[in-house]
Amino acid sequence: MKIAFSPCPNDTFIFHALVHGKVDGAPKMEVTYADIDKTNHWAAENRGPEVMKISYAALPWVLDNYQLIPCGGALGRGCGPLVLINGEKSFDDLKGKRIAVPSDRSTAYLLFRLWLRQQVPDHGSEIIVMSFDDIMPAVQSGEVDAGLVIHEARFTYQNYGLSKLVDLGDWWEQDTGTPIPLGAIIARKDVDAKQLEEWIKASLSYAYENPSESNDYIMEYAQEMSADVARQHIDLYVNEFSMDLGDTGRKAVESLLVRAAAEGLLPKVEVEELWSVK
């Protein structure tokens, strides 16, 4: 079975056992490590692997060919994207500025657009898509005026002398009361989703029961991240929603997609279609 997910510690932690043949009955996994910007577009163009990690914000473009798997993803509290600037500035200072974002179909960018509409409706900013690894250096150098960052940047942005303008996770949780749906696992519609769900849950259970066994694998793909930052990353993004979205997780996903569609930022999704796993 072909699968694509990011090299980030939360994904390698969750999928370590599945990738390394430690889940009984699971097929051999052929892995592609890809940034979520790539998988979002692969899924929308129906040319990716059978199983992929994408942004929840990209779901409306993929549901004709893929189904949502209610585990293995990233959803939680206190883990939202940050808007960073160089120096102390106000929200209004974003008007007419160059802002770097990691993907034009990411949940992070969707949250940012929702926040801008509420807080800086006449911003007139220029949005520039770049690899998330390049965003903080670009803000630091002045290439862009602000940057939307995700992942381990929450723990390292001070190293670049940058300041946090807004934590979009805090804003979303205060505004909606729900956790943030960031990354989703999807599978082609001809995949046995119930079986895949069992394999992913077994892989995550194995990771919890054998926490040190995946260390070498995680650090191999951690892209110069320190072991401490990698552990913080896992602790933040792997939680009860990674094992099962549950009612709270489902409500969060629905809140994001329904609100964004009402704002004209996403195509409308039939909520019932999201949960029709076969």
Rank of each mutant, 00 (worst) to 15 (best):
Arg98Cys: 02
Ile99Pro: 11
Ile99Cys: 11
Ala100Thr: 09
Ala100Trp: 02
Ala100His: 07
Asp104Lys: 12
Asp104Ala: 05
Asp104Tyr: 13
Asp104Pro: 02
Arg105Tyr: 09
Arg105Leu: 03
Ser106Asn: 02
Ser106Gln: 00
Ser106Leu: 01
Thr107Glu: 01
Ala108Lys: 05
Tyr109Thr: 15
Tyr109Asn: 14
Leu110His: 00
Phe112Trp: 11
Phe112Tyr: 10
Phe112Asp: 05
Leu114Gly: 03
Trp115Cys: 12
Trp115Lys: 12
Trp115Thr: 11
Trp115Glu: 11
Leu116Gly: 10
Leu116Lys: 02
Gln118His: 10
Gln119Lys: 15
Gln119Tyr: 08
Gln119Pro: 02
Gln119Ile: 14
Pro121Lys: 11
Asp122Phe: 04
Asp122Cys: 07
Asp122Ser: 14
Asp122Asn: 15
His123Lys: 09
Gly124Tyr: 00
Gly124Cys: 06
Ile127His: 07
Ile127Tyr: 12
Asp133Phe: 06
Asp133Cys: 00
Asp134Gln: 14
Met136Leu: 07
Met136Ala: 15
Pro137Phe: 05
Val139Cys: 01
Gln140Pro: 01
Ser141Asp: 11
Gly142Val: 03
Glu143Ala: 14
Glu143Leu: 12
Asp145Arg: 00
Asp145Phe: 02
Ala146Trp: 10
Ala146Val: 08
Ala146Glu: 06
Ala146Asp: 03
Gly147Asp: 08
Gly147Met: 04
Gly147Trp: 02
Gly147Ala: 05
Leu148Asn: 05
Val149Met: 03
Phe155Val: 12
Phe155Tyr: 15
Phe155Trp: 12
Thr156Pro: 05
Asn159Val: 02
Tyr160Met: 05
Tyr160Thr: 10
Tyr160Ala: 01
Gly161Phe: 06
Ser163Arg: 05
Ser163Glu: 07
Val166Cys: 07
Asp167Met: 00
Asp167Pro: 01
Gly169Pro: 03
Gly169His: 01
Trp171Lys: 09
Trp171Phe: 07
Trp172Cys: 12
Trp172Gly: 13
Glu173Met: 04
Glu173Ala: 06
Glu173Gly: 07
Gln174Val: 01
Asp175Met: 12
Asp175Phe: 10
Asp175Asn: 13
Thr176Pro: 08
Gly177Leu: 00
Gly177Tyr: 02
Thr178Met: 13
Thr178Pro: 01
Thr178Glu: 12
Pro179Glu: 04
Ile180Met: 14
Ile180Gly: 08
Pro181Leu: 06
Pro181Met: 09
Leu182Asn: 15
Leu182Pro: 13
Gly183Thr: 09
Ile186Ser: 08
Arg188Gly: 08
Arg188Gln: 11
Lys189Arg: 15
Lys189His: 09
Asp190Ser: 13
Val191Trp: 02
Val191Glu: 01
Ala193Cys: 13
Ala193Gly: 15
Ala193Gln: 12
Lys194Asp: 09
Lys194Leu: 13
Lys194Ser: 06
Gln195Ala: 14
Leu196Pro: 00
Glu197Pro: 00
Glu198Gln: 14
Glu198Asn: 13
Trp199Asn: 07
Ile200Phe: 03
Ile200Tyr: 00
Ile200Glu: 04
Ser203Gly: 01
Tyr206Ile: 03
Ala207Pro: 06
Ala207Leu: 04
Ala207Glu: 06
Tyr208Ile: 04
Tyr208Asp: 10
Glu209Arg: 13
Asn210Met: 08
Asn210Arg: 11
Pro211Gly: 03
Pro211Thr: 04
Ser212Thr: 14
Ser214Cys: 07
Asn215Met: 00
Asn215Arg: 11
Asp216Ile: 10
Met219Phe: 06
Glu220Phe: 01
